[in-house]
Design a protein around this nucleic acid. Structure first.
Length: 581
RNA sequence: CGGAGUGUAGCUCAGCCUGGUAGAGCACUGCGUUCGGGACGCAGGGGUCGCAUGUUCGAAUCCUGUCACUCCGACCA
């Protein structure tokens, strides 16, 4: 490719709405251009990166035995009605109508359509297992799109779906994907971690997220540096403390805490550690009739240590919370506790509530909580003495740095990550909902055992940039760089010698199968160097009269501090060596 | 969806408070000088100031409405 034929549109300043470095650099390097909130043009330079990501993913998926197909971006609502997701999914599912007023959705994912294909096409156990995938445009009407391609509304995802005859086989298919994903992410040259994820209602451990490690990541990754344990924050279990509850030593005392409605404020006022306070969270679960009208609400009081945070996924699994929960309204709080949030506690309730204590809270003695009276807290609270033992003790909180690892082999550490892949065992959730069956050896219909496997194709370049950049710009891993090599001639239009040498080098590299761009724009050297460092091409070759006099070509990797000189005659071989071809 | 904020040239922004014929830098075009680390000079092109209403002799500026976008909170590749 010659730069004069291509489109290079770099910016010195980043647009004001680009917050994080990957977004800023993608805009400045002219990779993407915003068309609307969370909707981007992939400009020629950016599309080359996307295509390379796709090619790697496609190659490894094919090697793993998956077969490619594509499903429509716009899908009729009927299939989505079958699984109930047309109504159940929130507004992130974009629903549209055609000219006849019929409902359609813009696919955020394709379980319905692929299950429909499977139930029509796969009739016998002899055709199993199968794994279908597509690389296709997705749309999720995010509440808050941000960070460029990191959280766009329209994006490209590779989504794969496996179909198996039974759970044993399905788990084997899952493992094949887990292995393929590692190969894929290894090829991108990024630091990543595969972490155990929560698999929701289906249960089991068969869900992993692939997280690219980056300080700006939106997800917290929990891992154990001394073992191979890794999980996301939703999943990581806070083990029950091994120590016994200390004996009560302090009397129950009501203390004034005017205006101090949070645990940190109260701890500071009383001069005690935050870990001696207990925070009260009031939740409600609703029983609904067939019209989704609330017929009865149960109020719950969850107790967590003042320095801990509630984990909504864990809470959602408590007995009684299976059908969802919400925060109680202020009216419900006043009704049961006699005061507004800020001074709540399990003592002196106006109406009974069900109490759930976190494992840590259950072994606390002499703790502090709200008095159920504005501007007062109670100190020296003790289980058994001042209130009954908790009805239920459970893991309610997010783990924190230093908690023991669930595998018992050390303590937990936390880092940030960007989720670029997720693999998931689905079981028969969709096949049952859509009555998708095949015939087994006995001629009996059986539901497909399914799995689904996603990779955020367009998110990946953003994650790569977050992990690989410097003050000059992007530093692409060679595997996904828009070009592998750039030839920068000094005075291309002015010097016959330079032009001839640059053209020759360009032709030879092309012949060697190198993805090379020749910068024939005849810009000033400084601005060409700055452009290519911003764009992040891994290898740069400078052709100038100065070097040619000695028969040399200047070489510099994007990551090198200084350039070095190569013999013009061996330059192509050197580049081929770098790229391994 | 709740809270906050911003809409002026392709990009970054000034002008608005205090109404009076729309500005700068970068980018772009032409000419000249220069040219191995984002050059300089001269001359140019480009904006119905998000949109709509109202107030006014007169609105980028003031009022009202509306749309879009951005930021902060609960979901997700």
């Amino acid at each position: 490719m010659k730069a004069s034929q291509f489109l290079i549109s770099t910016l010195k300043e980043a647009p004001a709405d680009a917050e994080i470095v990957s977004h800023q650099l993608m805009m400045r390097a002219g990779l993407i251009k915003k068309l609307g909130a969370g909707i981007y043009n992939y400009m020629p330079m950016g599309l080359r990166v996307i295509r390379k990501v796709e090619a790697i993913v496609r190659e490894e998926m094919n090697k793993a035995g998956a077969v490619e197909l594509t499903m429509p971006v716009v899908q009729p609502s009927e299939l989505w009605q079958e699984t109930g997701r047309f109504d159940k999914m929130g507004p992130e599912l974009l629903r549209i109508k055609d000219r006849h007023g019929r409902d359609f959705v813009v696919q955020p994912t394709s379980e319905e359509v692929i299950t429909d294909i499977a139930r029509q096409e796969i009739r016998s156990y002899k055709q199993l297992p199968k794994n279908f995938y597509q690389i296709q445009t997705k749309f999720r009407d995010e509440r808050r799109p941000r960070f460029g391609l990191m959280r766009g509304r329209e994006f490209t995802m590779k989504d794969a779906y496996s179909f198996d005859r039974d759970m044993v086989s399905a788990k084997a298919s899952y493992q094949v994907m887990a292995e393929a994903y590692r190969k894929i992410f290894d090829r991108f040259g990024l630091q990543y971690r595969a972490v155990a994820a929560d698999s929701g209602a289906i249960g089991g451990d068969l869900s992993e997220e692939f997280q690219v490690i980056a300080a700006t990541g939106e997800d917290a990754i929990i891992y154990c540096p001394t073992s191979d344990y890794a999980a996301n924050i939703e999943k990581a279990e806070a083990l029950a403390p091994q120590r016994a509850r200390p004996a009560a030593t302090k009397p129950l005392t009501k203390v004034p805490t005017p205006g101090k409605s949070t645990c940190p404020d109260v701890a500071e006022l009383l001069g005690v550690p935050l870990a001696t306070t207990v925070k009260s969270l009031v939740l409600a679960t609703d029983e609904v009739d067939e019209h989704s009208a609330i017929v009865k609400s149960q109020i719950w009081l969850l107790l967590l240590r003042g320095d801990h945070d509630m984990n909504e996924v864990k809470v959602g699994k408590l007995p009684g919370f299976e059908k969802g929960f919400r925060f109680a309204t202020e009216a419900e709080v006043v009704d049961h506790f006699g005061t507004k949030p800020g001074y709540l506690g399990p003592l002196n309730l106006k109406k009974p509530v069900r109490v759930v204590a976190d494992r840590e809270v259950a072994i606390m003695a002499d703790w502090i909580c709200g008095a159920n009276e504005a501007d007062f807290h109670i100190t020296g609270v003790n289980w058994g003495r001042d209130l009954p033992e908790p009805e239920l003790v459970a893991d309610l909180r997010n783990v924190v740095e230093g908690d023991p690892s669930p595998d018992g082999k050390g303590v937990l550490a936390i880092e940030r990550g960007i989720e670029i892949g997720h693999i998931f065992y689905l079981g028969t959730k969709y096949s049952k909902a859509m009555n998708a069956t095949f015939l087994d050896e006995g001629g009996k219909p059986q539901f497909f055992e399914m799995g689904c496997y996603g990779i955020g194709i367009t998110r990946l370049p953003a994650a790569a940039i977050e992990q690989n950049h410097d003050d000059k710009g992007i530093i692409w891993p060679a595997a996904i760089a828009p070009f592998e090599v750039v030839i920068v001639p000094m005075g291309y239009a002015k010097s016959e010698q330079v032009k001839a040498a640059a053209d020759k080098l360009y032709a030879e590299l092309q012949a060697a199968g190198v993805d090379v761009i020749l910068d024939d724009r005849d810009e000033r050297p400084g601005s060409m160097f700055a452009d290519w460092e911003l764009i992040g091409v891994p290898y740069r070759l400078v052709v100038g009269e100065r070097g040619l006099k000695e028969g040399k070509i200047e070489y510099k990797a994007r990551t090198d501090a200084e350039a070095s000189m190569l013999d013009a005659t061996t330059t192509v071989a050197h580049v081929r060596g770098l790229l391994g071809r």
